[in-house]
Design a protein around this nucleic acid. Structure first.
Lengths: 348, 348
DNA sequence: CTGAAAGCGCTTACAG
DNA sequence: CTGAAAGCGCTTACAG
């Protein structure tokens, strides 16, 4: 379906420049720029100001940020690197970061660092555009990528990337505490035989913390036994792990999964294949609160990651780093428990 | 948790320029640039090339895309405008668009056009950075925003925004056909009494097409009766609509919702409050295939939007428009049916 | 408060 | 194939 209309020719007449406006208004080019520069426009006489504004309006003047970036030696652009395979949670974080940056008058240049794609290239692109700073909000950054990032000459902030030897500021969900708190809750709710489903093969850094936090949380209550299973974060792998778990003679009565998608699989297998009642006969809980958790068919109790705190902190850290030399901070954001109906309450 | 390390000073030594490299390599500045310009680097002698590359490596030279944009009169940046309240589907579209653009060597400048935020401002920012083109992938663009976009001097492509008087190219899901095909399927599956849940109060353009396509699809099979209900796209509103529907003496046996979240609400109310078996006693289907639809607890039959075709077409259209004057196209992308278990099959 | 001039780091004809 | 020069559209001292 085509018609005779055409796009505005991309070879259209050049947009007006400050020089054009100056000529029309009968003032100097520098004066025009001063009118459009917040730091100066108070120190400009109202008369000149009016003339310039009028001329600018007539010519449809729109100042050239590219030229400004070149002379001002900062671009007003923040590079944001996300990860290809990221989920609802990271999407939410990205949305918040974009919003905040936009409100602060900064621009976002977005890059997707697919696992297979070279982070080096992405970083290079970012540096070519002389971004003022970079926020890396990626679950899956390999250690080689980390080495690359380490060479960045511009301020960097890492979101949810754990580094043994911090070379820049970062904000991280406290996965250990999140899991530990869940362990507390599950023990107090009356759990007896526990199982934990991990996703070890994943390149996500945070997995071991979630497991360690959980196991340690149990231990603090004198529970030293916990069946360990694993999947790959998918619904299907959760179902398979559940079958292995529920086929055991020493079947667990409480299953905690390091991701909610796997937990949906556990619940569906338990109910539809093993005819188990949830939570009466089996308690299920998971890390990461995704959409389906709130639906009546699941009502899954979860550890909710603090996406707002994460993004706020990331913004604060990157602004600080851009302002000038600042100490490297590692901030831990506290997750919270989202209690729903998938865990039975026999005690308390 | 702070430590003594510091971010690389943002007032660090200036990055090396082509002039620095030239000096070090003992060649002219233009030669340096030619080595780094794909269009030229074949017409450069290997000897000179080597010298330049070596010097560049030593100085850690990274060409300045800002300066290049200024002289080359194009920035290599595409503005992408998304909508604050958008869902999984739009997120997927955005991801694909970002990926493709990145692979084509273009940069993405991302803006979030919240309904309350001025599209005018977003457009202005984009124009200041002299983006080469703009892709608007937003479900919620008001007509006033449309008027603003209309003034864009740079090529524009609209994704899923319907305009009565097309002023630029766009790619749109064929909501009418999607619904009509679902109507076909539901009638052939043996549906008798139909209901449609809309979300009329939404500012989304596409809603009436989904309804009309559905009603017309029914009519083509001689079905002129369809109960009309409405919600606001949320799970809760779907539950409420379901209660009203299932309380009727002429209770429908087939419910089609214009969004899947509302359909989850319908299913949960039907099963848990009305003790209805799905699909035996009630068939449910929805527009838009989101994650939970594939879970065993729902197995919702849906109309799946063609996110890949949508993004591919958007890329093609924006490239065309940037290349030069091109006819305005309105491309319709065909959705497909994702058949699962939420609709009974009594005939055929 | 305003203007003239230099310069940001490239690209692009134009010579040679 | 290589270099010198002008210019992209701003900002930033420096005068006045």
């Amino acid at each position: 379906m085509k018609n005779e209309k055409r796009h505005p020719s991309s070879a259209a007449t050049r947009p007006a420049t400050s020089r054009d406006v100056a000529k029309r208004a009968g003032v100097s080019q520098s004066s025009v720029c001063r009118v459009f520069d917040e730091r100066w426009n108070s120190k400009v006489s109202p008369a000149l100001r009016e003339k310039v504004l009028a001329a600018a309006r007539e010519l449809g003047y729109c100042s050239n940020a590219i030229a400004r970036s070149l002379t001002a030696q900062h671009s007003g652009i923040i590079g944001v690197i996300i990860s290809e395979d990221f989920n609802e949670f990271y999407y939410d974080v990205m949305r918040r970061i974009t919003n905040s940056l936009q409100e602060l008058g900064m621009r976002v240049m977005l890059f997707n660092a697919a696992p297979y794609r070279d982070v080096k290239q992405v970083l290079r692109s970012l540096l070519e555009y002389r971004v003022d700073g970079i926020i890396v909000t990626a679950a899956a950054i390999s250690t080689v990528a980390e080495a690359t990032l380490q060479e960045s000459p511009v301020p960097l902030v890492l979101v949810n990337i754990y580094s043994r030897t911090p070379f820049c500021s970062s904000v991280i969900c406290d996965n250990y505490s999140g899991s530990q708190n869940m362990a507390d809750y599950l023990v107090r709710s009356g759990g007896q035989r526990f199982a934990y489903i991990s996703a070890e093969n994943s390149k996500y850094y945070d997995i071991s913390d979630r497991r360690e936090g959980f196991l340690n949380g149990l231990r603090r209550h004198g529970v030293y036994d916990c069946i360990l299973e694993s999947g790959d974060y998918t619904y299907e792998s959760g179902k398979e792990a559940a079958r292995r778990l529920l086929d055991r003679p020493d079947r667990p009565d409480t299953i905690f999964s390091c991701g909610s998608r796997m937990a949906y699989g556990v619940m569906d297998v338990a109910r539809y294949e093993y005819n188990l009642k949830i939570p009466e006969e089996l308690s299920v809980a998971a890390y990461d609160d995704t959409f389906a958790s709130a639906l009546d068919s699941y009502r899954l109790t979860t550890v909710q990651q603090p996406s707002q705190e994460l993004s706020r902190t990331a913004i604060r850290l990157i602004r600080q780093a851009i302002e000038g030399p600042s100490p490297i901070e590692t901030v831990y954001a506290m997750p919270s428990l989202e209690i729903r109906g998938s865990v039975r309450r026999t005690s308390e």
